[in-house]
Design a protein around this nucleic acid. Structure first.
Lengths: 65, 65
DNA sequence: ACATAATGCAATATATATATTACATTATGT
DNA sequence: ACATAATGTAATATATATATTGCATTATGT
């Protein structure tokens, strides 16, 4: 499923996918895929996103199934 | 670094690494490696661990560095 | 002390996350 | 309408998570 929380948090910081990717040191596609929910990122990557977007894991990635 | 929070949460449920692994559908080694901090698990795996151990992502995997 | 369960740790194999490049489409500003 | 930036998406290549098997070591119970 799409990760709209991450998309919103990125918007809050006024960053493009490319800018966020660069800050994290990852490719733009990886960010795009995370937001479109096309795959299963690593914990390190999630933590890096959290730090740049000033959110916690629960705020961006929690999902009660 | 080691993940002692996960180890403690597993102890709280009185599960062995093997039992936890089986409940999640993953190998025992994967659980062992997660706890010994030897690698970088996927978000799905973290979420599965959280659900079995009744914890959130932040409780088990957050680290302010 | 013994038996058994739990854990740590290698080596190799396989699945999949991520990079790279490229192109098409959609948004945004002038 | 045009230019440009942002995004979606695909194909292939590479790095790495995870499985599998096996053995050594440490804990736990009797």
């Amino acid at each position: 499923m799409k990760n709209l929380k991450m998309k919103a948090a990125r918007a809050e910081k006024d960053l493009s996918q490319g800018e966020l990717a660069e800050k994290i040191g990852v490719s733009r596609q990886t960010i795009g895929l995370m937001e479109s929910g096309k795959y299963n990122p690593s914990l390190q990557l999630c933590l890096a996103v959290c730090h740049v977007l000033s959110k916690t894991l629960d705020e961006l990635f929690w999902q009660d199934e």
